[in-house]
Simulated assay, not measured.
Amino acid sequence: MAVKSQLSAPKTKNPNTGSHSKAESQGQWGRAWEVDWFSLASVIFLLLFAPFIVYYFIMACDQYSCSLTAPLVDI
């Protein structure tokens, strides 16, 4: 029974054989292997401050007639 399940398992392709190019076998498409510090800092900034930015826009539209500079001037 165990031999049958092993035989019927799907076979995977070896990435070193076939007509694949060298770039395809080195990594996955769409993945960044090296990320600079500015990209990392901007992603962390967006994750941390996105709720506050949304709250600022809602407050500006509700209390200041959708003026984005009036709340800053009022402070």
Results as ranks from 00 to 15, higher is better:
Met1Asn: 10
Val54Pro: 01
Pro10Trp: 00
Asp62Asn: 12
Val43Gly: 03
Ala32Arg: 04
Val35Glu: 03
Ser8Arg: 10
Val43Asp: 08
Ile53Trp: 10
Gly30Thr: 00
Leu7Ile: 08
Ser19Ala: 10
Asp36Cys: 06
Lys4Ile: 09
Ala70Arg: 14
Leu72Ile: 12
Leu40Glu: 06
Ser42Cys: 07
Gln26Thr: 01
Phe52Ala: 15
Lys11Thr: 09
Ser25Tyr: 01
Phe57Pro: 00
Tyr55Ala: 14
Val35His: 01
Gly18Thr: 00
Trp29Gln: 06
Gln26Met: 05
Cys66Val: 15
Ser42Gln: 11
Phe45Lys: 12
Gln63Lys: 13
Gln26Val: 00
Arg31Ser: 04
His20Ile: 01
Ser65Phe: 11
Pro15Lys: 03
Met59Pro: 00
Ala50Met: 15
Val35Trp: 02
Trp29Gly: 00
Arg31Ile: 06
Glu34Thr: 03
Gly30Lys: 01
Gly27Leu: 01
Val73Lys: 11
Lys11Gln: 09
Gly30Cys: 01
Gly27Trp: 01
Leu48Asp: 07
Leu72Trp: 10
Ser21Asn: 05
Ser39Ala: 07
Phe45Thr: 15
Asn14Met: 04
Lys4Asn: 07
Pro71Gly: 12
Met59Ala: 13
Val54Gln: 13
Met1Leu: 15
Ala23Gln: 07
Ala50Tyr: 14
Val35Gly: 01
Gly30Trp: 00
Ser42Ile: 09
Cys66Arg: 15
Ile44Arg: 06
Asn16Leu: 11
Phe38Thr: 03
Ser5Lys: 08
Ala70His: 10
Val3Tyr: 07
Cys66Ser: 14
Ser39His: 04
Gly18Asp: 00
Asp74Ile: 06
Cys66Gly: 15
Val43His: 09
Ile44Gln: 06
Lys4Gln: 11
Ser5Gln: 12
Phe38Gly: 00
Gln63Phe: 12
Cys61Pro: 10
Gln63Tyr: 14
Trp33Phe: 05
Ala23Gly: 00
Thr17Trp: 03
Ala32Phe: 04
Ile75Trp: 12
Thr69His: 11
Pro15Val: 02
Phe45Gly: 09
Ala32Asn: 06
Val3Leu: 13
Ala32Met: 04
Val54Leu: 14
Pro15Thr: 02
Ser21Leu: 03
Phe49Glu: 07
Ser21Tyr: 00
Thr17Asn: 03
Glu24Gly: 02
Ser21Ala: 03
Gln6Tyr: 08
Asp36Pro: 00
Asp62Arg: 13
Ala2Leu: 11
